[in-house]
């Protein structure tokens, strides 16, 4: 049974594309055949995160307008052979693809792939409506910040209106120290407002930036806490029951080191 998952958030910059890349790689590492579709036409980034920009020949607009078969536009990942990217156009804009075209495309791709993951653009306009049209599962990404939570709430409402019932939550960029001090919303606050199933809590991790710039998702790095959190999310998507990571407290020695570093 193949799944079509849309990764969305409403607010920009919370980590939709990073999440898409990491979950995609994670599912592929487990041997699933995965296709990632970037629908952020005009502002595509997913190819950069996967380090595949220089291999793009055709794009989503070429496919939906019927110029080429989707198989021609797919870019195979250099390392994970069962991971494919369907990039979008950087020249056209969101109006170039409509919901019906994407539904049709996903129906066709469903026969070939175990997972189709759609990276949704920010906002609630045309691009969002196109991206969610085909999905049967939606993953809402948010951050522990009131504006991001507010937008996630709005997006969940919109998804409900579009009859998407399977909605899951990922909270990205949590800073345990700030939560502990009460300077950041904690999971309880977020759960209470959004009240949907949470499948991931990802700590803020500098290695994600490194990974992005290198074009290798954090999930491939063994020493990244965010990567570990993404691995757990992938396991939960595959139906495993994995406990949430304990927030890592700064240890005594780390604090001591910092102190001396400051002095």
């Amino acid at each position: 049974m193949s799944q079509i998952i849309v990764i969305t958030s409403g607010k920009g910059g919370v980590g939709k594309t990073t999440t898409t890349a990491n979950i995609g790689v994670g599912l592929a590492m487990r041997g699933n055949k995965v296709a990632l579709i970037d629908t952020d036409t005009g502002l595509r980034n997913l190819d950069l995160l996967l380090g595949l920009e220089n291999r793009i020949l055709y794009d989503l607009v070429d496919v939906t307008s019927g110029r080429v078969q989707y198989k021609k536009a797919l870019v195979r990942h250099k390392k994970y052979e069962n991971l494919y990217l369907l990039p979008t156009s950087q020249i056209k804009d969101k109006s170039a693809v409509n919901p019906d075209q994407l539904v049709k495309l996903c129906e066709e791709m469903k026969k070939e792939f175990d997972f189709i993951i759609i990276d949704c653009p920010a906002g609630i306009e045309q691009g969002f409506k196109t991206a969610i049209a085909a999905a049967d599962t939606a993953i809402v990404v948010t951050m522990p910040e009131i504006s991001a939570v507010r937008d996630a709430d709005k997006i969940i409402g919109e998804l409900g209106r579009a009859d998407k019932e399977n909605i899951k939550l990922i909270v990205n960029r949590i800073r345990p120290q700030m939560v502990e001090k009460g300077d950041m919303l904690d999971m309880g606050d977020i759960d209470e407002i959004l009240s949907i199933v949470c499948i991931g809590q990802i700590p803020d991790d500098e290695k994600v930036v490194v990974a992005t710039n290198r074009g290798e998702p954090a999930i491939t790095m063994s020493d990244s806490t965010a990567g570990q959190a993404y691995k757990n999310i992938v396991a939960r998507l595959c139906g495993e029951n994995v406990p949430f990571l304990k927030p890592q407290k700064e240890g005594f020695f780390a604090r001591l080191k910092k102190l001396f570093g400051l002095l």
């Binding site: 709005k154 969940i156 409402g157 409900g160």
Partner: peptide, 8 residues
Amino acid sequence: NHTIRGGQ
């Protein structure tokens, strides 16, 4: 019979 979310 449901939660009223932001914007509704």
